[in-house]
Design a binder for these strands. Structure first.
Length: 476
RNA sequence: GUCCCCUUCGUCUAGCGGCCUAGGACAUCGGCCUCUCACGCCGAAAACACGGGUUCGAGUCCCGUAGGGGACGCCA
């Protein structure tokens, strides 16, 4: 049997980080069955039943986010709203079969009912007052909603693939609205019909839908349709343990992209957040497809930890190809230097990327660190660097400079030897010479190996930057 | 409030009755490497929420308690 999963976000304006994980799990589950089972498809459906929320940009935000993460869906993204006719038909059919009924309650009545229920400690809100009432008693001109006749007595059991069997007494379930007074379908009706029509076999979604599953299961049953398998994955919480919300900061995957995270890192992190395969931490896409299964999904909510994501990101940056990284940082590099890039920037970055990427945990950092190769003279010095260029620091530079200039071949080995020889003759530690060099050549106190930097910068640029520092013409 | 779910180091987790004096990863703290920072390597501190059972034996099974979370819309 071919497995069919689906990701069904509502257009909220961005791809929520929790939604991203849900999408990832659905995608992996389908891919796993496609490659190691008897087939798998991953569908994307936009839950735009509530037209008030719908905008084209909101839909684009979701598809862009999924594409960035590399989670391609099968077929076209489907609009749930476009199936409204079909949903209404199903509701009318239920009505004709006496499995649903018209409810003429006013919003005020409903509000009172809810209040009373709460006061009396009942969770069943709607009392079903129109269930057996003659529609002839309806108030003049009132447009009814269509409600489903839920079973009275007994219980509903969901065999959840993650949570295990979950049971609720049917008396806790009230008759839910299928069709609104204006004739549009509710989410409850729409998901069930769409999942059935699309042949969805596995509904993998957030834990917050678990209680909905009871109601939806009853709808499937009264429609005489096969129940899909349900898998409710725990939610992602903020560092404080509450459901991730705006006050926790970055919610959309686009925010993480902007902060310099790689999609590979985010996927790896999200995968590991709530799912495990023994002690494995770094898991490639292919490996994930092979290993992924619902049985290894945890049942407790997990807190989002940016530190771990960052660490993973550092790993994926180190592993990424130099050319790819250069492409990724070029825009921000150009921007931060106001478009004034040194002529040989590309060449220097190609040589220097290996040393650069080892020291960056985000693309933002990488870009900032790469400025030393792209910037033009005279360099700006940060505070600590300018302090290194006072007094004996500058003195050493002045004495070292001729030794460097005299070098026949300008390469790492020779540069290092010349500097070491100088340090020895001056009876100072290498660092006493290397740090002022770093300050003069990069404007900073932290950088890749300084002899590497000198080699990449080349003789002219290195000597030039040295002279700038010696004459003190750097910007602060 | 009602219903549902959850509970191993600070965080993510391994553990599916004896292999656990509870393992890994991130973070933290030491140390090594070293021209700085990072990487890498070595090491330390750090957890089975509590109480009852079941069993020869429980982190692992059952029941309570406590704590946390989620759902209670003509939103999705």
């Amino acid at each position: 049997m071919t497995v069919v999963t689906r990701f069904a976000p509502s257009p909220s304006g961005f791809l929520h980080i929790g939604g991203a994980r849900t999408a990832l799990y659905n995608w992996l589950f389908a891919k796993h069955h496609a490659e190691y089972g008897s087939g798998g498809r991953f569908l994307l459906r936009i839950e735009d039943t509530d037209r008030k929320r719908f905008t084209e940009e909101a839909v684009n935000a979701i598809t862009d986010g999924l594409s960035w993460l590399g989670l391609e869906w099968d077929g076209d993204a489907v609009s749930q709203f476009s199936h409204a006719q079909r949903h209404a038909e199903v509701a009318r059919q239920l009505l004709a079969e006496d499995k649903a009924y018209k409810c003429f309650c006013t919003p005020e009545e409903l509000r009172e009912m809810r209040q009373a229920a709460r006061q009396e400690g009942r969770s069943k809100l709607y009392d079903g007052r129109w269930r057996d009432r003659d529609p002839a008693e309806a108030p003049e001109g009132a447009e009814p909603t269509i409600r489903l006749k839920m079973p009275q007595g007994g219980e509903t059991v969901i065999e959840d693939l993650v949570q295990g069997p979950v049971t609720v007494a049917n008396d806790e379930l009230d008759d839910m609205v299928l069709l609104r007074a204006d004739g549009t379908p509710t989410y409850m009706l729409a998901v069930v019909v769409d999942d059935h029509d699309a042949g969805v076999t596995h509904v993998i979604r957030g834990d917050d839908h678990l209680t909905n599953a009871f109601r939806q299961a009853q709808l499937f049953l009264t429609l005489g349709w096969d129940l899909p398998a349900f898998a409710h994955i725990p939610l992602i919480h903020g560092p404080d343990g509450a459901k991730l919300s705006k006050r926790h900061g970055a919610l959309g995957v686009d925010a993480y992209r902007d902060q310099g995270f790689l999609p590979e890192a985010l996927c790896n992190y999200l995968l590991r957040l709530g799912w495990s395969h023994g002690d494995n931490e770094i898991i490639s896409r292919d490996q994930a497809i092979e290993w992924f299964g619902l049985d290894a999904v945890g049942r407790a909510a997990a807190r989002f930890d940016t530190d771990k994501l960052t660490s993973l990101n550092g790993h994926y940056i180190r592993q990424a190809g130099d050319a790819k990284l250069i492409d990724l940082i070029m825009p921000s590099l150009t921007e931060s230097l106001n478009g004034n890039l040194a002529d040989d920037t590309a060449g220097r970055l190609e040589k220097g990327m290996a040393g650069l990427k080892e020291r960056a945990k985000t693309l933002i950092e990488l870009s900032e660190n790469a400025e030393i190769y792209a910037t033009t003279r005279p360099l700006a010095l940060d505070e600590k660097a300018s302090r290194l260029l006072q007094d004996d620091g500058r003195e050493h530079l002045g004495l070292l400079r001729p030794r460097l200039e005299a070098l026949g071949e300008w390469n790492l080995k020779g540069l290092e030897k010349a500097t070491r020889d100088y340090a020895e003759s001056a009876e100072i530690k290498l660092g006493k010479a290397a740090q002022p060099l770093r300050a003069a050549l990069t404007g900073r106190t932290v950088s890749p190996g300084i002899f590497e930097v000198m080699e990449i910068l080349g003789r002219d640029e290195t000597l030039g930057r040295l002279d700038d520092a010696l004459s003190g013409i750097n910007k602060l």
